[in-house]
């Protein structure tokens, strides 16, 4: 088992342009069922052996797709997400970076009324259930199949930590790269809840960042409902307030979003917090032995 994506996931790529084609090829190599692509005007053609459609609705009709991966540029990506929600897809992953916040406010309002759709991202590396399905841009060789559920707001840091886990013999059930924007589809607490309820997941690694209060809420949830061991890491512990650390969401303003508050919330919930990514594998092993 795994969450959100597995061998039955059939993916349409929205915005199958240059970047989309590169990653669609990697995903097919990995074994992901990439059943179609959309690009207005390209309907009826093929790109790298992938049948193309003008609209997502037509693609879903023809292929029975249940998921989409979005590479549409920032100005149109909000619209692409709305199109995917309208097509009632179960899983939508949006890689696009730089979507205006107001577009995401509209998406969030529509998404709240569409409980059957889960959105991952935007501004994220995507999700992978190692050995089964990859929907995203992550280098697959750093991931391996196993029982560790992994949720992260970062991109490259996710690869780094997946690599550390893999080298330590700790394979993963599902890794969710949820994105670094202020408004995202699957915030940390929701991602943690999915992994907590997944029978194939034995322990959860939660990688957060400064900014917002998603980590505090995830800690609260685990304190009340945690069935799995968990280990956390917060990036940006040395960041000064008022400076935006690359991600639109990673900023400490006033009292909100500090690393201290996040570390304390996890520790209060009995979840140990690593000082550096390199400490995570040993802490996960120790947590599993407890």
């Amino acid at each position: 088992m795994s969450v959100l994506l597995d061998g039955r996931t059939k993916v349409v790529i929205q915005g199958l342009g240059r970047e989309g084609r590169f990653h669609a090829a990697r995903m097919k190599e990995y074994g992901t069922q990439v059943v179609g692509g959309t690009s207005p005007g390209a309907g009826g053609t093929q790109r790298d052996g992938i049948p193309m459609f003008d609209t997502l609705a037509a693609a879903v009709d023809a292929t029975g797709a249940n998921a989409s991966l979005i590479f549409v540029p920032a100005g149109g990506a909000g619209d692409a997400i709305l199109e995917a929600i309208d097509a009632q897809l179960g899983l939508v992953v949006c890689i696009t970076e730089g979507i205006p916040v107001h577009d995401m406010l509209t998406v969030a309002a529509v998404l709240a009324e569409a409980p059957s759709t889960t959105l991952i991202g935007p501004n994220c590396p995507g999700a992978i259930s190692p050995g089964k399905c990859k929907m995203g841009i992550m280098p697959a060789e750093n991931f391996s199949q196993g029982a560790i559920g992994f949720v992260s707001r970062s991109g490259t840091l996710t690869y780094e930590i997946a690599d550390l886990l893999t080298r330590a013999g700790l394979g993963q059930s599902t890794c969710l790269g949820i994105g670094g924007d202020p408004i995202i589809g699957l915030p940390t607490p929701d991602a943690v809840r999915l992994l907590n309820e997944d029978p194939a997941t034995e322990a959860i690694v939660i990688v957060g960042e400064i900014g917002g209060s998603a980590e505090e809420k995830a800690a609260e949830y685990m304190r009340a409902f945690g069935k799995k061991r968990a280990v956390a890491f917060i990036a940006g512990r040395s960041a000064p307030p008022g400076k935006r650390m690359g991600h639109a969401g990673a900023i400490v303003s006033g009292n909100s979003g500090t690393a201290e508050s996040k570390v304390k919330a996890f520790e209060d919930a009995g979840i140990p917090v690593a000082n550096a990514p390199s400490e995570i594998p040993a802490m996960v092993k120790a947590a599993l032995r407890r």
């Binding site: 992260s152 707001r153 970062s154 991109g155 490259t156 840091l157 996710t158 780094e160 670094g180 990688v207 960042e209 400064i210 990036a235 940006g236 960041a239 650390m245 690359g246 991600h247 990673a250 550096a276 990514p277």
Partner: peptide, 8 residues
């Protein structure tokens, strides 16, 4: 490369 990695 990558905001999270640089922060770390």
């Amino acid at each position: 490369n990558g905001a999270g990695l640089v922060m770390s």
